[in-house]
């Protein structure tokens, strides 16, 4: 079973948490058919800029652990 839809949903939820629903819905469209690596790189990039590298790493670690990636 592909992990991509679950990762996408989790990534969009994380974006919504910090950037709001409007931004999250745009990313939802962007992440469609994108590989896992692109999704993780994208959220790492925008989160690091917004909440700092350390916090971004912490959030992504929680996300990947929750998906058992």
């Amino acid at each position: 079973m592909s992990k991509a839809p679950k990762l996408k949903e989790a990534a969009v939820d994380l974006i919504s948490k910090y950037f709001g629903q409007n931004t999250a819905s745009v990313y939802d469209k962007f992440f469609t058919d994108e590989p896992d690596s692109t999704i993780v790189t994208s959220i790492n990039s925008i989160l690091s800029d917004y909440i700092g590298k350390e916090k971004a790493d912490e959030e992504i670690k929680k996300l990947t652990e929750s998906l058992a990636l």
Partner: peptide, 10 residues
């Protein structure tokens, strides 16, 4: 407005 109530930060 750009955040909405569903966002924790928002």
């Amino acid at each position: 407005r750009i955040y909405g109530l569903k966002s924790a930060n928002g």
